[in-house]
Simulated scan of single mutants.
Amino acid sequence: MTDRIYIQPLTLAPSPQAFEGEAVRLAGGMAYAREFAVMVAAGGKVTRRELATSATIAGVLAGLPDALAEEGERQWGNLRMAHPPLELGERTVRLDQPQVMGVLNVTPDSMSDGGQFLDNEDAANEHAAAMHEAGAAIIDIGGESTRPGAAAVWEGDELKRVVPAVEHCVAMGAAVSIDTRRPAVMEAALSAGAQIINDVSALRHDPRSLEFAAASDKPVILMHAPGPSGEVAGDLHNDAKYGNVVFDVFDWLAEARDRAVAGGIRRENVILDPGIGFGKSVADNLALLNALPLFHALGQPLLLGASRKRTIGALSNEAPAHQRLGGSLALAQVGMDAGYQLLRVHDVFETVQARNVWRGLRDAALTDFSALAD
């Protein structure tokens, strides 16, 4: 078994003043950490763990074998890497603070709002406008359900569902991402004005997807899912076998990143998503959510899609999807505290409000009330 290294930020703080300048700013955002767990693992089991700060991490890494030390240096640099804004047509989305991505499902059977907007164009347009006005930086449009057991979707139907929605959202001035696994749908949506490709199969469903995404030069969201990307999107939930779910998802996303870059996608165009709820048990999801800051070590902007997920229901007496607002907001705050740049949510108004309050608290924390007087 090959040893691997992982650097997990601990002791998160609302400002660098909390640790008298010793805190590290994660990914150029508004989350800070002072202590870091430097872990060496083999076969999913931690064989060595040391705590480090910015002042001591060089010494900790120097005590490791050369290959691990080199990878550790890369991850340490990645944790502190500030990411440039997303230039999405006429809109610029900054990544130095959390941004909200609103979900628009034009499907008959999605987990949360399937069927609500499929055959009611006015309702879909009204919902999109409400999300845009509420402060969604991006509207994510999908025409294929990815829940377990969802029926297969013909490409022609997916096109008919999503293209009009993209055109409408673009016309009202929104930045749009297209949630699809199919290169023909990607191409049609981008031609209609979409600016981001969001592929839950991480460009694995169709061998042409990687080539198209590279040629488009658009940002691409790559999500972790354990299963193969077969004809039915629900297959992505299958074959979940983890030695250590946190390390396994980290390694999988690192490989997806490297595969995308080797295929011609510019590294700054790669956004990663740990895939909460996809082929993961409640325990798996909770482990990932508790380890969210670790994924900054991959060196890419990060997306959290935990809104209305089944884990929330499992922790709240099996509340149905439309009654999971409180849990969704709690997990959105977990993502904000961890420095995640994009929050994919169904309840945009409430999440934007929570983000704005969170942002106000962070801004206020830059003036430390407990600082010693001169």
Rank of each mutant, 00 (worst) to 15 (best):
A62D: 14
A260N: 10
A69F: 08
R80S: 09
T351Q: 06
M186N: 03
S229C: 14
I7M: 10
P84I: 13
A62H: 13
P207H: 14
G327H: 04
D217P: 05
P207Q: 14
R182I: 02
M1G: 13
A297E: 01
I196D: 03
R324Y: 07
F278C: 03
T146V: 11
L294Q: 06
G360S: 12
R25T: 13
A192I: 05
L236K: 04
L26I: 12
D179L: 06
Y340F: 11
G335Q: 08
N78A: 15
I5H: 05
A136F: 06
A175V: 08
P16H: 10
T180I: 08
H132Q: 12
Q333W: 15
L104D: 01
A41L: 03
Q195W: 00
L104N: 00
A150K: 02
A33N: 00
P65I: 10
A225S: 15
N244V: 11
P14I: 08
R204P: 02
L343K: 01
L51P: 05
D96A: 10
A354P: 00
G28K: 06
I265V: 15
P9H: 05
V166H: 01
A165M: 11
G277M: 01
F250K: 00
L343W: 01
S112I: 05
I276N: 01
R147E: 08
R208Q: 11
V166W: 00
L294E: 06
A332N: 08
